[in-house]
Design a protein around this nucleic acid. Sequence first.
DNA 1: ACAACGCATGTAACCGGTTACATTTAGCGA
DNA 2: TCGCTAAATGTAACCGGTTACATGCGTTGT
Lengths: 331, 331
Amino acid sequence: MSNIRRVAELAGVSVATVSRTLRSPNIVSPNTRAKVLEAVRDAGYKPNLMAVKFRAQRTHNLVVLVPTIANTFFARVISGIQAAAQERGYSVLLCNTLGDESAERAYARMVTSRQADGLIQLRAFNPFPADAFSAGTLPMVNVCEVLDDVACPTIKLDNRLAARTLTEHLIELGHRRIAMIKGPRRSPLTRDRLLGYQDALKSAGIELDDSLLSPGDFTPQAGFDAADALMQCRRPPTAIFCENDEMALGAVKLIKRLGLKVPEDVSIAGFDDIAFASYSDPPLTTIAQPAETFGRQAAITLIERLDGKQDVTHTILPYELVIRGSTSKVR
Amino acid sequence: MSNIRRVAELAGVSVATVSRTLRSPNIVSPNTRAKVLEAVRDAGYKPNLMAVKFRAQRTHNLVVLVPTIANTFFARVISGIQAAAQERGYSVLLCNTLGDESAERAYARMVTSRQADGLIQLRAFNPFPADAFSAGTLPMVNVCEVLDDVACPTIKLDNRLAARTLTEHLIELGHRRIAMIKGPRRSPLTRDRLLGYQDALKSAGIELDDSLLSPGDFTPQAGFDAADALMQCRRPPTAIFCENDEMALGAVKLIKRLGLKVPEDVSIAGFDDIAFASYSDPPLTTIAQPAETFGRQAAITLIERLDGKQDVTHTILPYELVIRGSTSKVR
DNA sequence: ACAACGCATGTAACCGGTTACATTTAGCGA
DNA sequence: TCGCTAAATGTAACCGGTTACATGCGTTGT
C-alpha cells in the first residue's frame, strides 16, 4: 500500500506539501495542488487513518455498551447513536454486554487504553474505575436507564411520570386491582416506574398490595411467568402493567393460554412501543418513547463533552401514552 | 497520561525492557520484572493501544454492515459475531446501513483506510471497488444474504431447500393455492426461496400462478400490505408463505382485520424464527435458523482469512422446520 | 587463562502521518 | 537593482509503542 512518502516522490514535492494538499488545499499553489492530486490518484493513495488518529491522539470512536442488542427498543436507540455519530465523523464500537459487569469494565478499558474517545452506557452502571478520570472529565454519557449519582450527562424519560400516566389510564378504565410486572430489582428505572405506579394508586385512594408486584427481566418469557404467578393469587388482577412491551407480549400469551381474553378479562399495558406492539393481538396499549432521539441526543452530548464542554446536563425526553386494544373498561 | 518512557524512567530501565516485561515477561530477569511492574502500577500506566495498532499495522477491528439492526434476526447474528470476535481479541464496528449502497461504500473505506482489518457483510452487495484488493485477498466474509460471484467466503442457509421444505409442509396440509410474500426483488436470497417454493409446487403437480406472488421488504407493514393485495384477488390463497417472520406477523394482522381466522381460513408461515414468532397469536410456523452460529462462523472465518488463510469456503448451516399454530389443514 | 556462548539489557530505527519552524521563491516598491 | 514581505515549500521532530541489532557481562569448556 502506498504511503505519503511515495506520493511525495511521485509528485516531486515534500511530504508536508502532500499532507497540506489533502488537509488544507487552499494554502498550496494551484500548480502544486494539481501535481499532488495526480500523484495521489496514480498511487491509489489512501491516508492511513490509524496513523492520523495516533498522531492526533483522537480515535473518533465511541464505545456503546448495550445490555442486549436483541431488544428492539435498544436497537432503535443504537440506530440513533449511529446516525448522529456518523454525521459527526465518529464510528460506533458496539458492545453487547448481556449485563455482565466484568464485560462492561473490559469494554470501558477501550477508552482508558485509547481505542475509543468516549462511551455511551445504556444501563445504570459505571464501568470505569473510580479513579480513572479526574473530576468532571468522565468521557461518558448515560442514556435510557440512568445512574443517579455519577458525574456525567444523562438522557432519560421521566419514568415516574410516564408510569403514573399509564396507571392513571388503567384507573380511569375502572381498574382497582392493577398488577405490575417489574424489571430487575436494583434498576433505578424499575424503581422510578414503580414509584409512578404507586403515585397513581395513592392519589386514587387505592391501597397498595405487594402481592400484585412481580419481578421480571424484560424478556417475553419473564412476562409469561410473572403473569402466571399473578393470576394464581387469591384475588387476581384485572389489569397488568408491564415495564416493557416484550414482557407484555409474554403476559398476553399467558392470559390467552388460561382461556381468558385480553382486554375483556384482563387489560394489559406495556412500555416502549416497540414495532411489534401494534402487531400483537390485541395491539398493545403502551408508552411510546422517542428511541432514536435518545440515541441521537446521547451521541451529540458525548461528542460535545469530548470537545471540551464541561457542564453535566440532564435531559428529559417526552413520552406519549398510546392507547390501543389491550386495555379496556373493567369487567 | 503516562507513557512507556515515563515508566522506564521510574523503573530505571530502558523502554525496551518495559515493553518486554509487558509482552514477554519470561525473557526479563525476575528482579527487573518486579521493578518494572511496580513502576507500571505507580504510574497508572496503560499502553496506548492506538500506538500499538499503528505500529503493528493491524487494528483488530472488524466492520459489520447490517441492513437494519432493528431486525431481530440480524440482532442475533450480530450477537454471535460480537461474541466470537471478542474471544479472539477483536472489536466490532457496527454499521447500520439501511441498505444504502453509498453508505456501505463509505463504511468499506474504513478497511481501505486501515481503520479496520476486515468486513462482514450481511447483505448481497460488495462495497469494495473492484480494484481495491488483489485477487483472493478481499478481507470480507458474506453471511446470511450471499453474493454468488464474489471471491470471498460465504455462510448461508440452503434457502432453496428450506423454502421447499416449508412449502411441502403446506402442501401436505392440503393447500393448493399457496401465496408467497417475497423479499426485495434483486436479492439472491429471495430468488432462492422463490425457487424452493416453485420446486415444491412443481413436484406436487401444482400449477404456478404469478398472481400469488407479492413483493415485500421484510417489514411487518409490507407483510400487511402484501397480504391485503393477495386477499383481494379473484381466487385468494388458502396459505401464505412469508419470507420472514416480521412480514408474517403483518400478514396475520391483516387476515384478522378481514374478520378471518388464522389458521382456519388462511394458514400463514414465516421464516427465521425470531423471538416473537412463538408469542404471536397463533404462534408462527416458521423455519428456524441458527442465527448466532451464522455470526460466530462469519467472525471466525474472517479472522482466519485475515491471518492469511487463502481458501474461499462456502458454509451451509442447517435449518429446522418449526411447526406451530399458524398453519393447519386446508378448509 | 582465554575463547565462545548465551542471557539480560540498552540503543535507536521504524510505523505514517502532522505541523512548528526554517528556508526558498515571488512580488512589489523605492 | 536591492531590500523587504508574504506566500509556498521543505526539513525534521514528534506521537508511543515494538523490535532488530548492539553491547555488556557472567558462565562454561578446554
